[in-house]
Structures are given as structure tokens and as C-alpha cells.
Computed example of a mutant assay.
Amino acid sequence: MEETLRKHLEEIIELTDEEFALVLSHFKLRTFKKHQIVIDQGDPVKYNLFIIKGLMKSARVTPDGKEHIVQFAMENWWITDLEAFHYGTHSKFTVDCLEDTTTYGLTLESKLLLCKQLPKIEHFFHVKTTTGYIALQKRVLCFISSKAQDRYHNLLDQYPGLMQRVPKTMIASFLGVSRETLSRMAVA
């Protein structure tokens, strides 16, 4: 598991064994069961989670009980409510496990301390945040200016293998379409 995190970090920065040991000391290994809620909408957010194994989703549930999925996160992805994590506010999303999931969790305090101790980690997080923001912009633009079929193909590109791991109703929620519309797109 440690090697998965190290490989992920070293896609952006180089680390000595000593530096990686320092990084690892700030993370907490956390395991969750399928269907376990990790962050509940309205609660404070303690961790930014790096997924080693498994699958999670982030969703907003409206007062009438309708779920709007905003993110799926699988191996080598990060997931949290970033605003609540950074500002100490309450989460606007629920994050739960779609499979048994193993993560490395990082608190904000540990992240800030680690960035002071090892400035190259700050660069890592800057790159990850920037690429995440760009991906979010693309998703929003796709959502407001593309047809459902295009959103479906973008999902297949961004999340390879996801269709085999989650129910079609969740895919439909993520795409903002009905289950029936999704079935028609999958056939086309």
C-alpha cells in the first residue's frame, strides 16, 4: 500500500526514502466497508482521502431525497469536500463507499505541517489541485453545453471500468439523465 502512495506522489515529485518516510508519517491508513458513509452531508470534514483500493462517490442529497452524484473516486484518486476540509465548515456532500475501500487520510493540520517540512509536497498538492480544478471546469462546461451522449462518452474516458463497478442508476445521476435515457445511450 505504501508503494501505491509513493508511486502516486512520484508522478509529480521525486522523494528520497527519508522524505517518503516523513510523508507517510502524516497519513493515516483507513479502511471502510461497502456502503459505509465516510463524510456525511452537514458534518465537519477531517480528512482528504487518497484511495489505495476501492471505489467511493461524493453526492449531494436534496431535501426531497434526490441524490446528485458529483464525483466517483477510485484507485489513485483523492476525495473529500475540499471547501469544508480547507475552511473547517460543514460538508455539502455525502461521501460513501461503493466497495470495500482502503485509503490514506490526511488531516489539514498534517498537510500544512508536511508542506512546511517538505516544500516539494506543497508543489505536489498545487499540481493536484490545479489538475482537479481543470477537470471540474471541463465537467461543468460539458454539463452545460454538451448533449447527454457526449457526457456519457466523456464519463467512459474519464472513468475506465466504472460501468462494470456501479449500478446504472448512479451513472445516470452523475450524468444528469434518467435511467432510461442512459440505457438508450449505452445501446447506441
Rank of each mutant, 00 (worst) to 15 (best):
A59D: 09
R60M: 12
D96H: 13
Y47E: 12
Q41V: 14
L82C: 01
T102S: 07
K57H: 15
A73F: 00
C97E: 12
Q71S: 14
Y87W: 12
V23K: 05
L29N: 10
K111I: 03
Y87G: 09
D64F: 05
C97G: 05
L98R: 08
V95Q: 01
T89R: 09
I69A: 07
L82V: 05
Q36W: 07
V23F: 02
H35S: 14
C97A: 14
T80K: 02
L49Y: 09
W78M: 03
W77C: 02
N76F: 02
R30M: 13
V45E: 08
V23H: 06
A84H: 04
L106G: 03
K28N: 14
F27Y: 15
K53L: 08
L118C: 01
H86V: 08
D64G: 04
K92V: 12
Y104M: 06
Q36M: 06
F72A: 05
T102E: 13
H86F: 08
F85G: 04
F50E: 12
W77H: 07
E75W: 05
I79G: 04
E75F: 05
D81K: 01
T94Q: 11
T101L: 02
L98C: 12
K66F: 12
L49A: 03
K34Q: 15
A73W: 01
L22I: 02
I51S: 01
T80E: 07
Y87T: 15
T102N: 03
P44R: 05
Q117M: 03
Q41W: 11
H35I: 06
M56H: 10
Y47F: 13
L114P: 07
G65W: 02
N76P: 00
A73M: 04
I51L: 02
L108G: 02
R60I: 12
F93P: 02
S25M: 08
K92H: 13
K116G: 00
L82P: 00
Q41K: 12
L29G: 06
C115S: 10
M56A: 11
K66I: 14
L55T: 04
C115R: 02
Q117W: 00
A84Q: 05
D81C: 06
V38W: 03
T89S: 14
S58N: 09
K28A: 13
Q41E: 15
L49H: 10
Y104I: 00
T62Q: 07
I51P: 00
K28S: 15
E83P: 02
K46H: 14
E83M: 09
S25F: 06
E83D: 14
T102L: 01
C97N: 10
I37T: 15
E67C: 09
K92N: 14
D43A: 15
H26S: 13
T62H: 05
F27A: 11
G54I: 07
H90A: 12
R30H: 13
K34C: 07
L108F: 03
E109P: 00
T102V: 05
G105L: 05
C97K: 06
K57M: 14
Y87S: 15
F50V: 01
F50T: 05
L49G: 00
S91V: 11
L49T: 01
